[in-house]
Design a protein around this nucleic acid. Structure first.
Lengths: 135, 135
DNA sequence: CGGAATCCTTTCCGATACTG
DNA sequence: CAGTATCGGAAAGGATTCCG
């Protein structure tokens, strides 16, 4: 009966962790913010509603797939609204919800820290890479 | 000569975007924070230095590989220091640098937003999923 | 104890083609 | 215009094994 006990214990720990993380508010939000494009979309919508095609152009380099996926995610989380105007051709506008707007200061906090400390981070990287160039 | 022009244009846009992103301080920092384990490690080190094994136990569910990788990343960015005590067995302590500590308020900002608004996000998700259960 | 190196699965994401 | 559906390569990440 003792076979795989260690592996099973680890499995259970991981399951417990996964359950914990699934519950943890910070982790859920962080996972959302972590998404490569989320903050860029939020920033793009900060000032005014935008059409899909506007976002596509504003956020240079985003693929259509990722843009749509990101927008769906934000819509699901109640951070943006999607408004369809059934004209010809179709027009779709996205805009931040009040909830979405409350997230902007957080994004700004990250941005501010970045701009303040990025030079130190870069210097640290150079020093680190210089110390161990081979790795 | 006009063959693949569209694809080429897209490639160039993506390259330009990638170059832009590579330069952008906010993106660099966000990429770092985005890392699944970075904030957890920072939080674990907030109050006191910790040994590797302590971190491993505190941050339940992290694999040895990811923990080491995360710590190396933070060390490279000048956010934590790594101190080796050459006893038997070896002892390694990690602690936040002053720079690393300046990041704690940002992490807290995310945490605060999360705890304040997570119920709204969850409600939005339920509503969204209820409206389109099939997808 | 604190890793490094390897393998191998899963997940991400861009490219492409098609639709209302 | 604003998507959806699908596929294949790349990358992330877990499990395992070995070392100072």
């Amino acid at each position: 009966m003792a076979t795989m006990t260690a592996a099973q214990r680890r499995d259970q720990e991981r399951e417990a962790y996964n359950a914990y993380v699934a519950e943890c508010p910070s982790r859920q939000v962080l996972d959302a913010l972590s998404d490569k494009w989320v903050t860029l979309v939020l920033t793009a919508l900060a000032d005014a509603p935008r059409r899909y095609s506007e976002l596509s152009r504003t956020i240079a380099g985003v693929s259509q797939k990722m843009l749509t996926q990101t927008l769906r995610l934000l819509e699901r989380d109640g951070l943006v609204t999607r408004t369809i105007t059934a004209s010809v051709p179709v027009r779709v506008d996205y805009q931040l919800t009040p909830l979405g707007r409350t997230l902007l200061p957080v994004v700004r906090a990250i941005k501010d820290w970045s701009e303040t400390h990025i030079s130190e981070v870069r210097a640290a990287r150079v020093a680190y890479d210089h110390a161990a160039p081979g790795t």
